[in-house]
């Protein structure tokens, strides 16, 4: 690896000042499971300053309140999410994704904040966070702002973050009664692979009728894809497989994948239909149990 400097700031302000000063040549380090690979791989030769975010209190926050929802610091590793009983109980859709990114070792370091900032089209946690109406809390030299997760990634490995800005935390609204969520992905093996396609969904039920729903897809567009129309089509419909098939068809139609070594356009569009349907059916089951 080329020479880098390392700094370990203890406040958001210190970190954003460093990021503002160094611009493109600085990167925030959380779990490092993407960043260190990229730094070593020669694709980030312009980066010469690593700013460790793990000593900043706000980036380590895990606060759940049934009224206020969940605030998840950008540097909280996956295992701290699924080992937190209250969070696991309230947000099973988030646990689906936190427990399938990489293997045990990767989950000991990898973070959902990092997964979002890495902005890979295949980022497993991003559709799950979109389905749960997640919001990214950003700090920067000119103050704080919040961006819905579905608007955060702008192109492969590109985000809305401007010079000097950093992701501080993710916020999820409290789960409403009779709601459920699910993330499902397809990979050719049981674990440790990149999604050929993925679907993150959430539903809210009202006496057997779908009150609202959200659908989002991974690996089938330049960014994780929020398929607003698929969720909206379910509003007011009975919570049945027939209704779900309408939404999963819309998800298939919205996908605009490429053909690459992991799958063809046709295969991926088919997977979007299947994964969305199965994820919605599980989300409905979870909503009935909630």
């Amino acid at each position: 690896m080329h020479w880098i400097d390392y700094v370990n700031p203890h406040s958001v302000r210190e970190a954003t000042e460093l990021l503002a000063e160094h611009g493109e040549s600085a990167r925030i380090l959380a779990g490092g499971t993407d960043l260190l690979v990229l730094l070593r791989g020669g694709t980030m030769d312009n980066v010469n300053l690593v700013v460790d975010g793990k000593s900043i209190p706000e980036l380590n926050e895990v606060t759940y309140d049934p009224q206020a929802g969940l605030t998840l610091g950008a540097a909280v590793p996956c295992y701290k999410i699924y080992n937190n009983q209250a969070v696991a109980h309230a947000y099973p859709g988030l646990i689906d994704t936190a427990s399938l990114i990489g293997g045990t070792q990767i989950q000991g370091r990898a973070t959902l904040g990092g997964n979002l900032c890495n902005a890979a089209p295949s980022g497993d946690s991003i559709p799950a966070m979109i389905a749960l109406s997640g919001v990214a809390n950003i700090a920067g030299p000119s103050g704080n702002r919040s961006v819905p997760v579905e608007d955060f990634c702008t192109a492969p490995r590109q985000t809305v973050l401007k010079r000097g800005e950093m992701l501080v935390s993710l916020h999820f609204p409290p789960p409403v009664p009779n709601s459920g969520a699910r993330y499902l992905r397809f990979i050719p093996r049981n674990e440790m692979d990149i999604a050929v396609a993925g679907a993150g969904v959430s539903v809210v039920l009202d006496n057997g009728t779908i009150k609202s729903a959200r659908v989002s897809l991974a690996s089938v567009a330049p960014t994780p894809l929020f398929v607003k129309e698929a969720g909206e089509a379910l509003v007011g419909m009975p919570a049945t497989e027939e209704s779900v098939r309408i939404a999963s068809g819309l998800a298939r139609d919205a996908a605009r994948p490429i053909t690459d070594m992991r799958g063809t356009i046709e295969y991926r569009k088919h997977l979007c239909e299947v994964l969305t349907r199965r994820a919605l059916l599980t989300a409905i089951e979870r909503a009935k149990e909630a």
Binding site: Y6, G31, L36, G102, G103, Q105, I106, G108, R109
Partner: peptide, 21 residues
């Protein structure tokens, strides 16, 4: 980070130190 050959326990959790500075 793929093969796990370098696995160690760091503050109670297994990690791959090839992906730790």
């Amino acid at each position: 980070g793929n093969c796990g050959a370098c696995t160690i326990i760091l503050d109670g959790r297994i990690v791959t130190p090839c992906l730790v500075l």
